[in-house]
């Protein structure tokens, strides 16, 4: 759980950095360039397979934990006050993870599927507006795809913000938890790790949530 979590945490940094390039407000030129790089570079494409494998493994491990931990307490307490000893989001990682997965299915359908499989008869073939020219090479206009998904689609924006909100709580527990799993608990470094986890979760999630909102509100064009 910790190992796959670390990998996904690293992935989110890259994902967030590249997506933040929409805020250059250059009609998505920089963003499209890097999105094209991520979609065409052989090393990145190989890592993408690893990413899906780790994501599936993370989900599988989560389900294993859930089922084993459920059977560890067949008779539940009639009166229980977990709020006195632990954080709600630490106890709700399975629920938060499920919400993130539901969001992720929609998210992949919106962007990953058209950009990776567009060439083989999906919405991009029918949508000539999603192709633009950049530095002499054809790249997918993923930026335009973002605009199409978010502009004037309030419910999509709401679902995305809620998805990122679930991610925030999931990371808030997961970041520091991954270090503990690997045995890194130290008087001096653990408070630092916990602080870093809060900063990481907050920055990543505010950045992600601001993207659909900015597009909906016409802050970037």
């Amino acid at each position: 759980m910790g190992l796959t979590g670390f990998f996904l945490i690293t992935f989110l940094i890259v994902h967030c950095l590249i997506n933040s390039m929409i805020f250059f407000n250059d009609g998505g030129e920089t963003f499209n360039h890097w999105a094209h790089f991520m979609g065409s570079n052989l090393i990145i494409r190989t890592m993408e397979i690893g990413l899906f494998a780790f994501l599936l493994l993370h989900i599988f491990q989560g389900l294993m934990l859930w089922s084993q931990n459920r059977s560890a307490r067949p008779v539940r307490y009639a009166v229980n006050r977990p709020e006195k000893n632990s954080k709600w989001y630490s106890r709700s990682m399975g629920l938060l993870g499920t919400l993130i997965l539901l969001f992720l299915i929609l998210h992949l359908y919106h962007f990953w599927v058209p950009s990776r499989m567009g060439g083989i008869g999906s919405i991009h073939e029918l949508e000539p507006a999603s192709l633009s020219t950049y530095s002499g090479q054809e790249v997918h206009n993923l930026y335009n795809e973002m605009l199409m998904v978010f502009r004037e689609n309030l419910w999509v924006v709401i679902v995305y913000v809620l998805g990122v909100f679930s991610l925030f709580w999931h990371l808030l527990h997961g970041f520091q938890s991954a270090f503990q799993t690997f045995g890194l608990n130290h008087k001096r470094y653990t408070p630092l790790i916990k602080g870093l986890g809060v900063a990481y979760s907050t920055i990543i999630c505010i950045a992600f949530a601001s993207m659909p909102v900015a597009m909906y509100m016409n802050w970037v064009s």
């Binding site: 759980m1 934990l65 084993q68 931990n69 560890a72 307490r73 977990p82 006195k84 000893n85 632990s86 954080k87 630490s90 106890r91 990682m93 527990h173 520091q176 938890s177 503990q180 799993t181 690997f182 045995g183 890194l184 608990n185 130290h186 008087k187 653990t190």
Partner: peptide, 26 residues
């Protein structure tokens, strides 16, 4: 069951045993 680092144990332990011991075990 398995530890998911909820840390409820440390909060309720009558002797205040630290979860640093779980990390050491790991």
């Amino acid at each position: 069951g398995n530890c998911t680092n909820v840390y409820a144990c440390e909060a309720e332990c009558p002797k205040g045993i630290s979860v640093a011991n779980i990390a050491r075990m790991n």
